[in-house]
Design a protein around this nucleic acid. Structure first.
Lengths: 169, 169
DNA sequence: AATTCACAGGACAATTTGTATAGTGATCTA
DNA sequence: TAGATCACTATACAAATTGTCCTGTGAATT
């Protein structure tokens, strides 16, 4: 028997209405609860309840402002694979986190390596950032590659759209 | 009374007040214009104008709902480096975009390769997704690694915070 | 010196939100 | 099978917020 669960059966974390709501908000995030209810053809209370539950379940974590770093002057995005000294991940991550231009770090399988996404204002600036990373203690090797384009920008949409296809009985 | 005085160089896409506003919204994205103006100690019209200008300049692109894929059942995140046949990038990207689990694709320097971020429900599911990718025409080689943890989740904060420090050098 | 800008501060109507309450059908439970 | 729940519709109302428009004041630009 699995661990704790309030209603382990039927309930998938997100049903079709939830998905529709999330898709609607994806397209027009500033919509209010009332407007959402109108668009979805349900009562306002329902939308309110759904939203609350999505937040409760941790599915919807918020509505952070999407800032275009390019428009802010950081026109370059680069990825780096970082090889580090065994057992020093925490320290290295701390060092990386201290670098403003480091926008994301993942620990990945492979050889206990880290994967880093960073931005820079120019090639020269990227050089500086890379040097900064290399200077982080316990960083052994750094392999950088620059993003030339982003054919598929970060998205969740398809996953949400697929929920629609679920047996709405 | 202390008024603003550093707007002479309209070159900077984001000034300190803009950054503060974005940071505030980063922390509490559902705040309304009025509440923002109170927190920042400026007039409501100012906040409204700033927000409009940020959108105009393309810095603020919206407030998309942040969906936690983990909470939705996609507990696995993986990255893949994809080697493709010369000159087939567009086709391959199209094929990748058609896979729901593919959440992001970048074309990178290196060897005209692609970098892919994807999610899956389980290891078995990941296998399926990977197979799917390999099946995309013109995909030559695929090197996958799983994200074990995310020491630094996607962030913009440090870059915004730095704006506060006035024209650096 | 004149003009333009960004911002503070205020005013007003229309809309939205926060919160309740009642009614209905479907599902779960003892 | 008779309750008890649960999710949703439909309403209601006060309080708060939004969309606009205006005035006045410094500071920067011309």
């Amino acid at each position: 028997m699995p661990s704790d669960q309030q209603s382990e059966h039927s309930d998938q974390p997100v049903d079709e209405l939830d998905a529709k709501l999330l898709l609607l908000l994806t397209d027009e995030p500033r919509l209010g609860v009332l407007e959402c209810s109108r668009r979805l053809g349900v009562a306002r209370g329902t939308v309110q309840a759904r939203l609350d539950r999505l937040v409760e379940r941790g599915v919807l974590t918020g509505f952070p402002p999407a800032v275009d770093l390019g428009a802010m002057g950081y026109g370059l995005t680069a990825f780096a694979t970082v090889e580090i000294a065994q057992g020093r991940r925490a320290e290295v991550c701390e060092g990386l986190a201290a670098i403003s231009e480091v926008c994301e770090v993942h620990a990945t399988t492979g050889q206990g390596d880290l994967f880093v996404r960073m931005v820079a204002r120019s090639n020269a600036d990227l050089q500086r950032v890379v040097d900064h990373i290399v200077d982080v203690p316990h960083v052994r090797r750094l392999s950088t590659s620059i993003a030339l384009s982003t054919p598929v920008p970060p998205r969740v949409r398809p996953l949400l759209e697929r929920v629609k296809g679920r047996p709405p009985k």
